[in-house]
């Protein structure tokens, strides 16, 4: 099962990373201050595990909201950008040029205007995953599927909803991959926002731990971030697979 596979892969990578840290620590005789020993990590887990988990879930909720906002916005702008009119051309040009600018650099302005609350985190999360999503959607919405569209064009039955439906259906796997990729970006965006100035979330926790040089807290936070991200991305993949199966049918049973 693919979602479970993603979780297992994360656990393997995390354990391998921690194992490498400890192998380095014990082979080179590094201090507990530099790399915390296993018992210190367990102690941090017992003391702060619940708070960190709640902070991670808080980040995840904001990331999901930001992701949803970015998807909705990218769909609307992507539809405009796929048009052959002047509006479409302007939208495409604007999207290609704006995406080249690093959104993180704009974050301080957002914090200045909106403060360090939910709105800033949400907007930064949405903006960071929005542009890659938008460019992919413009690409998918603008790419004709001639073999299917020809009949509808010839007979005059084509309308914009059918055209988009055909293009989305033909690119469903690419679309799911883009959604999963942008989900990761939303998580990254939220953590970056929290790390920069917010007062909630796991990014804020990491910032505090960094000021205290507390690597055990950071390692615990990284574990929870990976866990939350894996669960969210697995959910998107599962949802995508369900839609794909519903639309395309089981390969072994093509009767509807």
């Amino acid at each position: 099962m693919k979602p479970l596979k993603r979780l297992i892969q994360f656990l393997i990578i995390y354990i391998a990373g921690i194992g490498l840290l400890w192998a380095t620590k014990y082979s080179l005789g590094l201090s507990d201050y530099l790399i915390p020993p296993p018992h210190e990590l367990l102690k941090t887990l017992r003391q702060d595990g619940l708070d960190y988990l709640l902070a991670s879930l808080n980040t995840l909720v904001v990331a999901i909201q930001g992701h949803a906002l970015a998807i909705a916005l990218a769909c609307v702008v992507g539809l405009l950008g796929s048009m052959r009119s002047t509006i479409g051309a302007i939208t495409r040009t604007a999207a290609y040029n704006l995406q080249a600018y690093p959104i993180v650099a704009v974050s301080p302005i957002i914090f200045l205007f909106l403060g360090d609350g939910l709105a800033s985190r949400l907007i930064i999360a949405a903006l960071i995953c929005y542009f890659p999503l938008l460019l992919s959607l413009i690409g998918i919405f603008s790419q004709p599927v001639d073999d299917i569209e020809h009949f509808f064009n010839e007979t005059g039955m084509m309308n914009w909803r059918l055209r988009i439906g055909i293009r989305v259906f033909e690119n469903i796997e690419k679309l799911i991959t883009v959604l999963v990729g942008s989900g990761t970006m939303a998580m990254v965006g939220t953590i970056v926002a929290e790390f920069l100035a917010a007062t909630h979330g796991i990014g804020y926790v990491i910032r505090k731990a960094l000021y205290q040089d507390n690597l055990a807290s950071i390692l615990l936070a990284l574990f929870l971030i990976g866990l939350c991200s894996s669960i969210y991305l697995s959910f998107i993949e599962l949802f995508g697979a369900l839609i794909k199966n519903k639309l395309q049918g089981d390969a072994n049973n093509n009767e509807i």
Binding site: D147, I148, F151, E154, T155, G165, F169, L247, Q248, I256
Partner: peptide, 18 residues
């Protein structure tokens, strides 16, 4: 005037009948 060619496809989400 209609033009049809051999590699055309039907949308995959519908049955032939629909």
């Amino acid at each position: 005037i209609l033009y049809s060619y051999d590699s055309e496809r039907l949308p995959g989400w519908l049955s032939i009948e629909r």
